[in-house]
């Protein structure tokens, strides 16, 4: 048998480091990574230097692209480029926050369920089944309606107590319920994936060795089981980010998501769709940003999946 260890230097390379090297070799995934980075920069840095996205100028509506309005203006004369960037903030944040919320809940719930096994597992998974049986969008709409009821009160409370800018606070409390509504329901599938992973990892002999060495349950779960399920979880969650962005777009398209005058990519596409025949750039330009981001996230997710694949790591 080949003595693999002899050739490598004294410092070992962890599976994470190997994965990073494999990732760096994947051109599509790296392209996706850079596109997302640029998108981030534009939405969260460049946006501050753009004109006010909500400034109405009816005299200048449907203006073609020009030096002043790079992408032209919409039906109320608002700067489209600026609206796309501000809309991107909402869309990207929805993707990230909802994913973070669902990953946090999903990992803990799934890992506990899989690790406990037996009756606890059966009950916990039946709860997930029940929630999965209700159409996702219906649940999101109900949850969001409930959370939105509080948003007006929350705005007043924050403005009174912390003296934040009222406009900014209103924008925030308008979108935050959406983040959480998506996140609170998105964990369902994730928890099942984590559970399945945990169940297979806990049968591995190193977990049995850990028991034989007298390690406590908490140590085994957090140090030996969960780190080994993180790979597949990370992969799955990068693939859910586009899903959440899409759901926000659908909800906004249906008029249930972000409220006017705030924008998101979904809202912009919806507005643009009304002028399909005359001003097609109002639909195409936000659509382009939206698709580009989704594509990049999917490439990145695929790249991560290949990079973290344990089978590949074995060779």
């Amino acid at each position: 048998m080949a003595e693999q260890a002899q050739a490598s230097p004294k410092h070992g390379s962890s599976l994470w480091r190997d994965a990073r090297l494999r990732m760096a070799r994947n051109k599509f995934a790296m392209a996706g990574f850079w596109v997302i980075l640029v998108m981030f920069f534009m939405c969260f840095v460049l946006a501050w230097f753009c004109p006010d996205p909500n400034k109405v100028d009816l005299a200048d509506k449907f203006a073609p692209p020009s030096g002043e309005h790079w992408f032209g203006t919409d039906k109320l004369g608002r700067d489209l480029f600026s609206r796309i960037l501000y809309g991107g903030q909402v869309s990207i944040l929805v993707g990230l926050v909802a994913t973070a919320v669902s990953v946090a809940i999903g990992i803990v719930y799934g890992a506990l369920s899989g690790f406990a096994g037996g009756k606890t597992d059966a009950v916990m998974m039946r709860i997930v089944d029940t929630l999965l049986a209700i159409p996702f969008l219906v649940l999101v709409i109900v949850l969001q309606a409930t959370l939105s009821d509080w948003s007006g009160d929350a705005t007043n409370w924050i403005v009174e107590n912390f003296h934040w800018n009222k406009e900014f606070t209103a924008r925030l409390t308008n979108v935050v319920p959406l983040f959480f509504a998506l996140g609170l329901l998105g964990w369902l599938t994730l928890s099942r994936i984590v559970r399945a992973q945990v169940m297979s990892i806990k049968e591995r002999e190193f977990v049995e060795a850990a028991t034989a060495l007298g390690y406590g349950k908490r140590r085994i779960l957090f140090r030996h089981v969960i780190p080994n399920v993180l790979g597949p979880t990370v992969v799955y969650s990068t693939l859910t980010v586009p899903g959440f962005i899409m759901y926000e777009a659908i909800l906004s398209f249906l008029g249930l998501g972000v409220e006017s005058p705030n924008s998101s990519w979904g809202v912009l596409i919806k507005e643009g769709a009304n002028f399909l025949e005359t001003e097609i750039q109002l639909l195409l330009l936000p659509g382009l940003f939206f698709s580009l981001t989704l594509f990049s996230l999917n490439f990145l997710g695929d790249g991560l999946r290949d990079a973290l694949d344990v089978k590949a790591a074995k060779d």
Partner: peptide, 29 residues
Amino acid sequence: MQIIFQDPYASLNPRLTIEQALVEPMLVH
């Protein structure tokens, strides 16, 4: 009392260095 398993590939946690894997039982005990 300790145990050694058949499959040395499955009986080591792939995310821990050898040092971490060997120090851990000493910490616990």
